[in-house]
């Protein structure tokens, strides 16, 4: 027996076929957090790619800002069922950051200021599928949304788009991240509704 609260709809709006199964549209931008919001001064910010051969590629904020930028407009889908269409970001494609990186690794572990981690196959970060962004909707990315810079991997559930990103470690073996070790799906494809472990 289920109890219906008469007239309750929640804050959702109607769906279209741009929505993966089970998702609802939102107009606002919900903030989900697993800890305090890190404050990272730009003069101490850095982004690093560490390869399986212990090679490290680093960018200071200045170096990062000097890289060619793109302004992708993408749909984002959160595992907690909200989706937001046509969000516009500005940042650097991971293809640019990986240009000089030599690796045979298959897996990536993304890590953040504040200790958050998330894992995904390296190929999901390449070929125009992912960006490190520092602007949202024409404005500087706010700390609560992941500023100074966050990862955006829009084809996977949004927990893979790590806020406050600090680096990517390349690995020969998969290493499940923060939510992936606590019940969430290891890959997280919204179109196949891979929310939880076993979905």
């Amino acid at each position: 027996m289920s109890i219906i609260s008469r007239g309750f709809r929640g804050k959702r709006r109607d769906a279209g076929d741009r929505l993966p199964p089970g998702q609802y549209l939102v107009e606002d931008f919900p903030v989900l957090s697993a800890g305090p919001t890190p404050r990272v001064p730009l003069d101490r910010w850095e982004f690093a790619i560490d390869t399986e051969a212990e090679q490290t590629h680093r960018w200071s904020w200045e170096e990062f800002m000097a890289l060619p930028a793109e302004t992708p407009t993408v749909d984002i889908h959160c595992v907690t069922k909200w989706s937001k269409l046509d969000t516009t970001w500005e940042g650097v494609s991971l293809d640019v950051l990986f240009e000089d990186v030599e690796t045979a690794a298959e897996y990536a572990l993304v890590y953040s200021y504040g200790g958050y981690t998330t894992n995904l196959p390296l190929e999901d970060l390449l070929d125009g599928k992912a960006w490190i962004v520092h602007r949202f909707d024409g404005e500087e990315l706010e700390p609560r949304h992941g500023g100074p810079a966050r990862l955006i991997v829009p084809h996977l559930y949004f927990w893979k788009s790590a806020k406050w990103v600090r680096g990517i470690r390349l690995l020969n073996d998969d290493w499940p991240g923060f939510w992936e070790t606590a019940g969430y799906h290891n890959y997280g494809d919204p179109w196949r509704e891979q929310r939880y472990e076993g979905d």
Binding site: I3, I4, S5, F8, R9, G10
Partner: peptide, 10 residues
């Protein structure tokens, strides 16, 4: 807990 007609809950 509130449940909408279509099963959505909050």
């Amino acid at each position: 807990r509130l449940t909408a007609e279509d099963g959505y809950t909050a």
